[in-house]
Design a protein around this nucleic acid. Structure first.
Lengths: 152, 152
DNA sequence: ACTACATTTGAATATTTATGCAAAATTACA
DNA sequence: TGTAATTTTGCATAAATATTCAAATGTAGT
């Protein structure tokens, strides 16, 4: 059973890893993940999460408000996990990337992982090949249990 | 004669010193100061000023979106931009990489960009695929105009 | 289990914001 | 100055977001 908190977490993960420019778009992405609600509910969720809609050079996008960002980070540190070819990108709260990268370095034993690089709020995990993605994700999930639920 | 710039300055002054929760309210306050425009114009002004509407404990209010990032990025002396498969490497002056990465994170709306990682003078931009290079470069150029001329 | 109370949600709708288009104003320049 | 190009604006309306109200669901206490 998916709870409201699950949905809020999913929204946070989506917003932090993808460009979402309106609530209907967010609705679609949530539907894909099995959350079925209406726009009215999203409007309330967005208010509760203090998500703001910002103007960028090429359109609008929702963004986690920095203070809330910090609170979320306090809980898990990890906001979202995404991957492409042989790279995994983990978004964290500001300042948490180093801790997460360090955790992966020391707590994960996986030959598929060549190494990690941390910025301020982003961790890059470099794999030997795109084929080893599943293997690496399993290894990481073992060390950081709730990371799986954040995966896009 | 009141110019558009006068109006933009007035808007900035108003919202940074008072709580304004919607555009009609801003319209009234501008009227009092002798600016007579319509809501449509304010919508455009707000977009131009990158003002955001944030959720507070007791309602909504407009707030200036910090332009620090963008300005810093503009003046940061981006030295070069290079790419290989799904990675873009931006070289900056010493210490400026974080500012440039941050600018890209907050001011660019592009799903092709998975994330950025900054060292001291190097920014790595991770794309979803090599195919999305042109798209990502366009998006970045929109936010940091003169980056294009630096492109290899 | 029943009742009282609180929380969550959807449907419909009100409110708010953005935009296409044409007109007016401004600027650039021969 | 006259004319073309660009920018700015209002009007009307589309699009997006918030809210009211009632129903449904959940929670405690007895």
């Amino acid at each position: 059973m998916k709870t409201k908190d699950d949905r809020l977490a999913a929204i946070t993960a989506i917003i932090s890893s993808q460009v979402v420019s309106n609530q209907d778009e967010l609705l679609e992405k949530l539907n894909l993940k099995g959350f079925n609600v209406t726009q009215a509910t999203l409007s309330r969720d967005i208010k509760e999460l203090k998500i703001v809609k910002v103007h960028t050079a090429n359109g609008y996008k929702y963004q986690i408000h920095s203070e809330k960002h910090l609170n979320t980070a306090r809980n898990s540190g990890i906001l979202s996990v995404d991957s492409a070819s042989n790279l995994v990108v983990i978004k964290t709260g500001p300042g948490f990337a180093g801790a997460v990268a360090s955790a992966i370095d020391t707590d994960v034993a996986c030959n598929a992982i060549m190494g990690t690089i941390a910025g301020d709020d982003t961790v890059l995990v470099i794999l030997r090949s795109a084929d080893s993605l599943a293997e690496a994700m399993d290894a990481i999930s073992g060390a950081i249990p709730n990371i799986k639920s954040k995966t896009i």
